[in-house]
Design a protein around this nucleic acid. Structure first.
Lengths: 165, 165
DNA sequence: CTTGGAATGTCAACAAGACTGACTTAAACT
DNA sequence: AGTTTAAGTCAGTCTTGTTGACATTCCAAG
């Protein structure tokens, strides 16, 4: 192996390699969101609704505050989305038992149905990418993604991940 | 190895694993764009300007049409961004020699300076993620990302990649 | 050679979804 | 009682996407 200082090949750290990684990330994210976007285009919903539905499904009973921190948006922005989802009967908002200021969010049956439709499409693409790349590549993929997160987000991601088995 | 049908471990294809991958992608993309976003927030520019600048730098002399296919937006959307960049002296738009309908796009010195500033920040994060994960993980990361792209985009990505050495 | 269609790019108007800032209501804490 | 916290609302702005209409240029078929 023709390698750089460090005793180990650092070819993967050249600017060209990094640039390719950046572009791969850009194009892959487009693919990643393409299927749900297509499904939502017909309805009056967008990517913001998808994200809200995803995380409510993931952590049923979560509060508005939790959700907006997770999504990284302001409450005004989230509220617009949440309002339409509640009005359309996809999300239920229940006053907190212990703390009545809080609202706990749940998907209704209709909400779960849409969630399934969206995540089935997204998982199908993910599954085919995973299958094409193989288990070892998937492990690497996950490692790099985690290292790319901001510390704060990483903690939130890991908490979510560990809660789901 | 306790494995599923196929003779090989398919644990990495469980719905839970796929869901974690989806969330990792979501959070990582936030980190991925965070630094350039911060830099651009001060100026009157946004992510769209960054993308235009990135790809013009990547393929100097590209036409508007090329660029909008790469970016996946309408020409009207791209045009607004491009107009401000030209007005502000970051991008130069030259009428095509062979075909006068076309405009060929180039970064000016000021444009190149901004490009460097943005991509330095983004590359720094990428580099630290790559370094933390190691070469083998990076190879896997790239494999999965490529498999996640739509066929059309993948071809564009690969053409771009291969042109850059 | 002309003319009509196709390709390229521009202008205008609008919508989604993010933001800030100011404010209200209700409940909890001290 | 007074302060803080959670949630929601109203108003206004910005970025970035969309359609629709239009101008210019090229090219090919008649």
């Amino acid at each position: 192996m023709s390698d750089a200082p460090g005793g180990e090949s650092l070819l993967f750290l050249t600017d060209e390699q990094l640039r390719q990684g950046i572009e791969a990330m850009f194009f892959a994210y487009r693919g990643f969101t393409a299927d749900p976007d297509r499904i939502l285009a017909g309805m009056a919903y967008g990517r913001a609704h998808h994200r809200a539905i995803h995380f409510i499904n993931r952590a049923p009973g979560t509060t508005v505050n939790n959700l907006l921190v997770l999504l990284g948006v302001t409450k005004q922005s989230l509220n617009r989305v949440l309002r339409t989802l509640v009005e359309d009967g996809l999300v239920e908002s229940k006053v907190g038992k212990a703390d009545k200021r809080e609202r706990h969010l749940y998907l209704t049956e209709a909400g779960e149905a849409l969630e399934r439709k969206l995540s089935d499409a997204q998982r199908a693409r993910m599954r085919s990418a995973y299958r094409a790349a193989g288990p070892q590549a998937v492990a690497g993929f996950r490692q790099v993604l985690e290292a790319m997160m901001d510390g704060d987000l990483r903690r939130k991601y890991q908490a979510l991940r560990d809660s789901g088995t």
